[in-house]
C-alpha cells in the first residue's frame, strides 16, 4: 500500500475550479517532485493534502496509509506524521527562532531534539533569540525546514522551498532536503518551478498541466527529454 494516495482530486477557489481529477501515489521513503507551470495546480494540491481552509474540495480522495485525509481535521493530519513547508514559509514572524522550532516539537508525539536542527543549520544556532521576521530569506527557509523536520515526520511536503533564494543557498537546501530523504528515510513531496532543484532531490516526478496530471517521469527522462520539458514546463 502506498503512503499517500491522491485519487480523482477536484478542488478550487471561488474564482473557479483548479484541479480536475488529479491522481498520484507516493511510496514510503520516496522523494517525488510535483512539477508544472504557474497555475497548474501544484500549490492547490499541497494545500488540499494539508487541509487548508482553501481550496474547497469538490471531490475525490486523499488517503494517507489507512486514513482518509479529507475526513480528518487539518491539525490531526500533522499527528499522522505529515509536515509542511509552505510557499512563503509562513513562519511565526514575532516568535523567535527557538520558539518557532519549539512549537512544532511541542505539538508532535515523538519530536526530534531541537539541538539536531541547530546541528543541521548552524546559522540558526547563532540566532536562536531572533524574531523570524528579522531574518534573511535563506535563513527563514532554513527555519521553515527545521520547523517541519523537528516533528519527526514520515512525509514532508515542500512548496517551492528554493524560490527567490541565492544559488549557493539553493544548493545548500537541495543537499539538506536530499539528506533528510536519504539518511532519515523521510518521504518527500516537493513542488518546484525550478526543475533543476526538483531533479536534484526527487527520483521521479508528476507533471501537472491545467489541473490535470499529464505525465509521470523519472529524473533521467526529465533531464533528457527536452520536448517534454518544453511542452509542459516551458523550460
Amino acid at each position: 500500500m502506498s503512503l499517500l494516495d491522491v485519487s480523482d482530486l477536484e478542488a478550487g477557489y471561488e474564482t473557479g475550479q483548479i484541479l480536475f481529477g488529479v491522481d498520484f501515489e507516493i511510496e514510503e521513503g520516496e522523494a517525488v517532485g510535483l512539477l508544472g507551470r504557474n497555475g497548474a495546480g501544484k500549490t492547490t494540491t499541497m494545500r488540499a493534502i494539508m487541509g487548508a481552509d482553501l481550496p474547497r474540495i469538490i471531490g475525490g480522495s486523499i488517503r494517507y496509509r489507512d486514513t482518509e485525509l479529507l475526513e480528518t481535521a487539518s491539525y490531526d493530519r500533522a499527528d499522522l506524521g505529515i509536515s509542511f513547508v509552505p510557499e512563503e514559509r509562513q513562519l511565526f514572524p514575532r516568535l523567535t527562532v527557538a520558539e518557532n522550532i519549539h512549537i512544532a516539537a511541542s505539538s508532535a508525539d515523538d519530536p526530534l531534539p531541537a539541538e539536531e536542527m541547530f546541528d543541521l543549520f548552524p546559522e540558526l544556532d547563532a540566532m536562536r533569540d531572533r524574531h523570524a521576521k528579522n531574518m534573511s530569506g535563506g535563513e527563514q527557509q532554513m527555519l521553515a525546514i527545521a520547523r517541519a523536520l523537528v516533528s519527526n515526520p514520515e512525509l514532508m511536503l515542500l512548496d517551492e522551498p528554493c524560490e527567490g533564494l541565492a544559488p549557493q543557498i539553493v544548493e545548500r537546501l537541495e543537499d539538506v532536503v536530499a539528506r533528510i530523504n536519504e539518511e532519515r528515510g523521510v518521504t518527500v513531496l516537493i513542488v518546484e518551478q525550478n526543475v533543476a532543484t526538483a531533479m536534484s532531490i526527487a527520483d521521479r516526478h508528476y507533471i501537472l498541466d491545467e489541473g490535470r496530471l499529464v505525465e509521470e517521469v523519472t529524473t533521467d527522462r526529465l533531464r533528457e527529454d527536452d520536448e517534454l520539458r518544453q511542452t509542459h514546463l516551458g523550460v
Binding site: 487548508a52 487539518s74 491539525y75 500533522a78 509562513q90 511541542s106 505539538s107 508532535a108 520547523r147
Partner: peptide
Amino acid sequence: DFGLSIRAGLQDQQMAEFLGIDI
C-alpha cells in the same frame, strides 16, 4: 507551551493548525 501555541495562533492560525495545534 499553551501560551506559545496561542501566540502562534494569533500570528498565523492556519500554520499553527498545520503543525498539529488544535486551534
